[in-house]
């Protein structure tokens, strides 16, 4: 079926429905305006999602939250900004969220460059959000949260926990320093103390 005949089938359906319901003239107009608005919103979201690949963090990958510290990519000495960038130049940052902090507590990253965060919880639900940016993800125990973004503006940002995680939830944050690309130096291969 080509798009023309599809459109005409749909509009004949709408007509049948409107006569069966005895829809008033004004209402018909409004129904079309309402449909138009919804199509516009859904259309622009689908466009950015499918064409430009803009998606919220949806990385279905499981991990054993109880044994993060025993080794693997979330072991204490592997956390923080990774010395080696990914093939496309993206910087990889690994964090562990646990009551009550994101570890390591301070990281430094350059503005204007793609940053991929991989975050795992070692206990309960947490959420990570850097205010005024779109760096946001839920951190669900048992799953790896992965979110990629670019920080356009240098500055000091807090990374706040935004999902209730216990009595210390209010005090769960860490510090993210976004430097200009010139000032940024790749971390040396050193053991980081939090």
């Amino acid at each position: 079926m080509n798009s023309n005949s599809l459109m005409s089938t749909i509009s004949s359906w709408i007509n049948r429905f409107e006569t069966e319901l005895q829809v008033d003239k004004l209402e018909r107009k409004w129904l079309r305006v309402a449909l138009g608005m919804v199509v516009l919103f859904v259309g622009s979201i689908l466009l950015t999602a499918i064409v430009s690949g803009v998606h919220p963090p949806s990385h279905v990958e499981t991990i054993d939250s109880a044994s993060l510290h025993l080794g693997g990519e979330f072991a204490e000495d592997k956390l923080g900004v990774q010395a080696e960038a990914l093939a496309d130049g993206t910087l990889l940052v690994k964090l562990v969220a646990g009551r009550y902090g994101f570890y390591p507590r301070e990281i430094e990253i350059p503005a204007g460059r793609k940053i991929k965060f991989r975050i795992a919880s070692m206990d309960v639900l947490h959420g990570a959000h850097i205010p005024m940016t779109n760096m946001s993800t839920m951190i669900v125990p048992g799953y790896v949260a992965e979110v990629t973004t670019v920080f356009p503006k240098p500055g000091e940002y807090p990374m706040l926990c935004n999902e209730y995680c216990g009595m210390g939830h209010d005090h769960m944050w860490s510090k993210v320093t976004v430097t200009t690309p010139e000032d940024w130096r790749a971390p040396a291969e050193e053991i980081r103390h939090e």
């Binding site: 949806s58 946001s136 839920m138 799953y143």
Partner: peptide
Amino acid sequence: YMDPEQNHGWKL
């Protein structure tokens, strides 16, 4: 939307 345990196709 912000959860890691569901794929983006379902969210869409």
